[in-house]
Design a protein around this nucleic acid. Structure first.
Lengths: 197, 197
DNA sequence: TTAATTTTTAAACATACATTCAAAAATTAA
DNA sequence: TTAATTTTTGAATGTATGTTTAAAAATTAA
């Protein structure tokens, strides 16, 4: 990657982050290209030098956050921790990421409203991949006799992911709990679902 | 209420339901007034006879579903069941409603993006009211010695409501589980969080 | 310094829709 | 049936904003 390419890539990421924070506040359709541009001290015309169109911009935001999310959960899954600790680690990773990058996460819901065609396919595939890692952990916990074998994997996964994905709806940086505290608390309470009794 | 008023109210509800199902599929901003109207075999002009504007339409959808939701959970809270059974009942009520009225629920997230002014205030107030009922149940469970006293009420409430609110993101009518089945399963798994051990 | 390449700009364009409105149609009450 | 009232219509209006574009500015390589 040449110097120029690196520079352009950096700029692109800068735009994505800035865009995410503006989109976070107003939502995709209420945010104009000018809003995004002006937040970067650019004019909206120059946005089209980096992105094909507004949808492309949203898609690339989605890409960026999914890539990081998947990397993080893979770390947990491939670690040599016990299933319980793996689950806690995965939960904490998600909470920490979604609270520190709240604006990026906020555009993750309703993919079928926001994307179409190949973009939609790919977005859904990535989500499936991410969700599947939770199944892997839960499965391992049952097989190793650490989790209650009577739990339904699918339901547990939906509960865990649902509660995690909803955090971005209520989390505030100036709220009573820090992202780290929420991470600890969620991890502790969510493992209760799978525990043997 | 006169005959005419009744008729108008019925029509209004008919519009709301139809609107919800169209909005569900395409999202608020991608749905045009014409989409909504044509689904009812009307012209978009006549929508304005019933609603002030598009935002008003969305707000009234929100109103309609929140009213029903609150009624349902009040039933659970005011029943004479044990806390565990109350919690199960509340969970099931939410699941059943959100799967049978999925389209109405889908517009419930991100109120601060969708509403403003009085509408926003009122929407937030209703959500707080709804959420608070879960706190009431959890509190009662702890006080009566039925739930584990070491759980954090706020976190448990966030987990429960989060997992419930996320159902609308993945639920499909033609999926492997019916709304009733999901309700049972969620109730069974979520109470595990509060159980004493 | 000069020429090539890149990035940025500001204005122009196009269009999709929300909303309005005056007139027509349908419904109701007498 | 007639007059009053409610509801619907279809066209007109206006505006917001995504996108294009040709030219200017800035950057880079020689």
């Amino acid at each position: 990657m040449s110097f120029r390419e690196k520079k352009a890539a950096k700029k692109k990421e800068e735009i994505l982050r800035s865009a995410a924070s503006v989109l976070d506040a107003k939502g995709f359709h209420r945010t104009t290209m000018e809003d995004i541009a002006s937040n970067l001290l650019m004019t909206k015309g120059s946005m089209y030098y980096y992105f094909k169109n507004k949808d492309d911009l949203l898609y690339q935001c989605h890409q960026m956050i999914m890539k990081i999310s998947i990397e993080r959960i893979e770390e947990a899954v491939h670690s040599s921790l016990t299933p319980t600790e793996k689950l806690k680690k995965a939960v904490k990773a998600h909470v920490t990421l979604s609270t520190s990058e709240k604006s990026m996460f906020l555009m993750m819901d309703k993919p079928n409203q926001n994307f179409s065609g190949d973009h939609l396919d790919h977005a859904l595939k990535q989500r499936k991949e991410y969700a599947n890692y939770f199944d892997v952990i839960i499965n391992e916990g049952i097989e190793k006799g650490e989790f209650d074998p009577s739990i339904e994997i699918r339901t547990v996964r939906f509960i865990i992911l649902g509660s995690l994905n909803w955090i971005m709806q209520w989390y505030r940086e100036d709220g009573p709990q820090s992202g780290e505290q929420i991470a600890e608390s969620f991890a502790a309470h969510l493992v209760r679902i799978v525990e043997k009794r």
